[in-house]
Nucleic acid binder design. Structure first.
Lengths: 153, 153
DNA sequence: TTACATTCAGCAAATTTTTCTGTTTTGGGC
DNA sequence: GCCCAAAACAGAAAAATTTGCTGAATGTAA
C-alpha cells in the first residue's frame, strides 16, 4: 500500500489543513527545500492521492439551501440492482455524497437542495423514479455543529 | 441575507471547484481585473463565508481508516442536555462531522477511526461516557461512491 | 570501484500575490 | 438631472512564490 513516506504524509496532512499553503511554507514545516516539496505535491496529485482542492463555504450564510441525510433501503439486493442504482443516483446534482453502508439501510445520501420544494422535487421526481428503491427515510439537517473534511492519516 | 453579488458568488463557486485557482485565473473567468478579486476573496475569508481550504485526500489509498455514520438518540431532549452533548462530542478527534437533525434520531456523526478497534474504543470509551446518550446506531461505510464537498450556491 | 538512479538544495526566470494610486461607477439627497 | 461621497475597479510596480533546471550527495547493483 504505502509508497508514502513521512514527507508525503506531512504534505497530505498540511494541505488538508490549508490547501492554499505555499510550497515554501510546506518546505519550512517539513524541513525540506522547495523543489522536493514541489515535485512531491505534483506526484500526489497525478497519482490520485490528492483528488482536488476545495474551499469550505458557509452554506447557511451563503444560501438558503437545505441539507438532508437520506437513507435508502433497496428491495432488490442483487449486484446488478445495487450497481445500477449507484450509477444513476450519483449523477443527480442534489446528491453531493453517496455511501454504501452496513445495517438496516443500503445507502446514505447527502442531499443539498435549494429549498424544501426542491428537495420534494428531488425525492418524487428523481429518486423515487429509480428502479428497486424500497423505503426512503429523510433526516433533515437542522444545524451543522462540526464539519471537518480532513482525515487523520 | 445576501450581501453577495454575482462576483462574490462566482468566486465561491470557482474556489469550491478548485481552491488553488490563482487570482489571475479567477479574474479572467469572472471578467474582472486581479485587484477586485483579491480584495473580495479576502473579504469572503474575513467575513466567514469561506471557512477554509482543504485538499481532498483519497482515504482508501492513503490509510486503512474506517468511516461510520453513527446515529444518536438522546434520552433527554432539554436544551441543556443537547447543548452539553454537542459541546463535548465535537471535540472528539474521531468525530469529523456532527449534524443536529429531524426524525427518529437527534444527531448524525461522521466518524473516522484508524481501524475497527479504534472505532470500538471510541464508542465505548468516549461516546457512551457522555451524559444522556440513549441509543446509538452505527452505519459503517463499505464504499464511498461519491463525495463532492462543494455546494451549489 | 564504477555506473546508474534517486533525492535533494540552490539558483534563476516566469508567474503570481499584494500593495498602492488614481479613475470609474454607483446610489442617495437635493 | 446634478452633485457628492463611498464603493468598486483597472493598471502598475514591488514583493513573494512557482516552476524548471543544474549539479551535488546518497544509495544500489554490477
Amino acid at each position: 500500500m504505502s509508497k508514502l513516506d513521512p514527507t508525503h504524509l506531512g504534505i497530505l496532512r498540511l494541505l488538508q489543513e490549508d490547501a492554499r499553503m505555499t510550497h515554501k511554507e510546506l518546505a519550512r514545516r517539513l524541513r525540506k527545500s522547495v523543489s522536493p516539496i514541489f515535485e512531491r505535491v505534483k506526484w500526489l496529485e497525478q497519482n490520485g492521492y490528492i483528488k482536488g482542492y476545495t474551499a469550505l463555504v458557509d452554506l447557511q450564510k451563503s444560501s438558503n439551501s437545505i441539507i438532508s441525510f437520506t437513507h435508502i433501503q433497496m428491495n432488490d439486493h442483487s449486484e446488478e440492482a445495487l450497481s445500477a442504482f449507484q450509477k444513476e443516483v450519483v449523477q443527480f446534482d442534489d446528491v453531493r455524497e453517496c455511501y454504501y453502508i452496513t445495517g438496516n439501510f443500503d445507502f446514505i445520501l447527502k442531499i443539498v437542495s435549494p429549498d424544501m420544494k426542491g428537495y420534494n422535487d428531488f425525492l418524487r421526481g428523481q429518486l423515487s423514479k429509480l428502479p428497486n428503491v424500497g423505503s426512503v427515510q429523510s433526516f433533515l439537517v437542522l444545524s451543522e455543529e462540526k464539519r471537518d473534511t480532513s482525515y487523520k492519516i
